[in-house]
């Protein structure tokens, strides 16, 4: 018989950190448990103690004060439904709405999605393109880590055993900026991404891409920001009929994207299919962002 596991519900960040400090890597943090309980049932986890954090009320808020601050316990339903998030972070809201069904979204948390560090974590690409930072609280205080550096490998993040991920900070959309999360799966819901791509693009007054952020998931061991492809998109003018230069920039971005990813064959798809679909996602993301910025501008003109 394996030693019996313990289940401890905590009410504050301090209590959680004390518990995690006491048990170190024998502790498993659990919130809604939608990943943890399944992995436990499959014997992929064997903690000595579950530290249950759903009762820490201070981590359930989403606040917008310049940047967006999301508590670790904000649920996917909250991300999908909150008007502030839908306006300032439409790609994040859209991504959260595609995570499982209502039953998963209602209790599954943002902190859980990030700490579980699935290669297919849907909330990661939209947060990567929003220059997100995670906040970790440990016995010696707070540590902030750019999300890009937080993912170390499949199911592996830069969180020390005694630390609790308490929140995420992200930059909302600016003027003449648009973003989108595109996800490929076998059906419209309850899908783990075959491939996912988030883009956040800024356009100048002539409709030329002035700044670009791109991030992908399910095409490598971790969600990934793709800086070389971002650079290749600068100067591209995707409006109307594209010039030869425009095509070259897009082809360069596609080549850079292909060079940065390392997809595998698995139960959901083949590496070859993932490679085939990525350029199409990139092209579509540019079109969608361009259209969104144009629509935004015409709305501004009317008002």
């Amino acid at each position: 018989m394996p030693a019996a596991v313990e289940f401890r519900s905590v009410r504050s960040t301090e209590e959680a950190v004390a518990s995690l400090s006491e048990h170190g890597s024998d502790a498993c943090v659990i919130a809604g448990g939608t990943d943890v309980m399944m992995q436990y049932a499959r014997h992929e986890l064997s903690p000595a103690v579950f530290v249950h954090i759903e009762g820490i009320k201070e981590l359930t808020n989403a606040q917008r004060d310049g940047s967006l601050r999301l508590g670790a316990l904000v649920t996917h339903r909250h991300l999908a439904d909150d008007p502030v998030i839908r306006t300032g972070h439409p790609a994040l809201a859209e991504a959260a709405a595609t995570v499982g069904g209502w039953q998963t979204q209602g209790v599954g948390t943002l902190g859980g999605n990030l700490c579980n560090a699935s290669p297919a974590a849907d909330t990661a690409p939209p947060l990567l393109v929003a220059d997100a930072t995670v906040e970790l609280c440990g016995p010696r205080g707070i540590r902030r880590v750019p999300l890009e550096e937080f993912f170390l490998g499949r199911r592996h993040v830069d969180r020390r055993p005694e630390e609790l991920l308490t929140g995420v900070e992200a930059a909302p959309l600016g003027p003449r900026q648009a973003e989108v999360y595109l996800k490929v799966g076998r059906r419209g819901g309850m899908v783990v991404a075959v491939a996912g791509l988030a883009a956040r693009l800024s356009f100048d007054e002539q409709g030329v891409i002035a700044a670009a952020r791109l991030a992908v998931c399910s095409v490598g061991p971790t969600p990934l920001r793709v800086r070389p492809a971002e650079e290749a998109l600068l100067g591209l003018c995707p409006s109307g009929r594209m010039t030869d230069d425009g095509y070259t920039a897009l082809e360069e971005a596609i080549a850079a994207l292909s060079g940065a990813v390392s997809p595998i064959d698995d139960v959901r798809s083949s590496a070859a299919y993932r490679r085939a679909v990525l350029p199409r996602l990139l092209r579509r993301s540019v079109e969608v962002c361009r259209a969104a910025v144009r629509a935004g501008i015409s709305q501004d003109d009317l008002s």
């Binding site: 289940f7 519900s9 809604g32 448990g33 309980m37």
Partner: peptide, 10 residues
């Protein structure tokens, strides 16, 4: 919620 993957003590 899916009761099959939700912890009873929670």
């Amino acid at each position: 919620i899916d009761a099959c993957i939700y912890a009873a003590p929670a």
